[in-house]
């Protein structure tokens, strides 16, 4: 062992402070999901026209959609925190979970394909969606950066997919337009678009946070 390495080990172990082990991926995913949903519904109430008057349809007629979006959000959040802990490779379980979350979104999008073009006048849905997305995504990045994400791009994708799912869920409770094309263009495709952007953001933000922390 070289003298420098010896010195470094001595330095690192000198006055060693206890550290609180990080919570498991399930717990962190639950925290992020709760936080995202709370922030989303709070923002809808405060900044948009509020929750739609017939919101019960999302728990009745559209319960599968609501469940699917919620499940995609939670699974993606779980995968994000799994990917935030060093490991020698992305394991099968992470691949399956993240793949499943993405697949749910592909199914939701496929269900709206072939519809008429959306009516004008609802374009502000994208602005609302973005507003609902920002704070929970920042919180997710903050949480993941306190771990040690080595797959920062994938972690960013999973985080954006998770938070995007909860934002889309919020939008379904806020916007009464049920036109398939409207849902496709202004509610669902943005989730995948933000998830793709999340890859780049993850690579930048998680990497920077990680090195400043180290």
């Amino acid at each position: 062992m070289s003298t420098d390495t010896d010195k470094l080990i001595a330095q690192l172990t000198q006055d060693l402070k206890p550290v609180k082990p990080m919570a498991g991926a399930g717990t962190l995913a639950l925290i992020l999901s709760t936080l995202s949903l709370t922030a989303t519904f709070a923002a809808i109430t405060i900044f948009t026209k509020g929750i739609r008057t017939d919101w019960q349809v999302m728990l009745g007629e559209h319960v599968c959609q609501t469940a699917g979006i919620s499940m995609a959000g939670f699974l993606a959040a779980y995968a994000a925190f799994k990917l935030s802990v060093p490991d020698t490779r992305i394991r099968t379980v992470e691949r399956v979970i993240l793949g499943l979350a993405s697949f749910i979104w592909v199914l939701l999008i496929a269900g709206q394909l072939g519809a008429e073009p959306p009516e004008a006048g609802y374009r502000n849905c994208l602005t609302d969606f973005s507003l609902l997305f920002i704070i929970p995504f920042a919180a997710g990045i903050y949480m993941a950066s306190h771990a040690a994400p080595v797959w920062s791009g994938w972690a960013g994708y999973a985080l954006a997919l998770a938070v995007g799912s909860f934002s889309a869920l919020g939008m379904r409770f806020a916007c009464p337009n049920e036109q398939p094309a409207h849902l496709l263009v202004w509610h669902y495709l943005p989730v995948l678009a933000f998830a793709v952007v999340g890859i780049g953001l993850g690579q930048i933000l998680l990497k920077q946070k990680k090195s400043s922390r180290a």
């Binding site: 082990p21 990080m22 935030s84 060093p86 490779r89 040690a148």
Partner: peptide
């Protein structure tokens, strides 16, 4: 810097070589 991320249910060697 990442020692708080190690959890006993994960194989240590996977974690270490991951870093």
């Amino acid at each position: 810097a990442a020692r708080h991320t190690y959890r006993p249910e994960q194989p240590f060697r996977n974690w270490m070589y991951g870093v």
